[in-house]
Amino acid sequence: MSLVEDVRQIAKKYPDSRSATLPALRLAQERDGWLSPETLREVADALELTPAYCKSVATFYDMYHLAPVGTHLVEVCTNLSCALAGAQKVVDAFESELGVKPGETTPDGEITFRTVECLGGCGYATVVAVDHRYKQKVGPDDVAGIVGEIRGAQ
């Protein structure tokens, strides 16, 4: 099904089709990897809203990408509980394992790595989300394995 049809279906679940904006943006991002201007125009058409409106919504939320990202997303929580449990060591481990800083993507375009705010796994620090699947109680020593897993999965 085309994005337009999918979006129309989702819109039916709500009293007001505008409510489909967040789901529509997510769908489009899952399809294209990130929300390029062209993608935003397409979403706007599907929702009968303007591209500017869609952009204003998309740029408000952290999970939408307004710039290209890698095939896989590695997110390390560095909020208080994880931080107290040594999240920065995990961040450093990823940095050396991947050879990129937080916010950057590996040269092969495979993995984008970034730090994020609390993921709601504070009791199981450090929490690392790989493509939004949580890995908990992650220590520096687990990092190599995680990266291997991601690369292996390709």
Partner: peptide, 8 residues
């Protein structure tokens, strides 16, 4: 709906 606020 052409003039909007972006970012947070």
């Amino acid at each position: 709906n052409q003039l909007v606020a972006i970012n947070r």
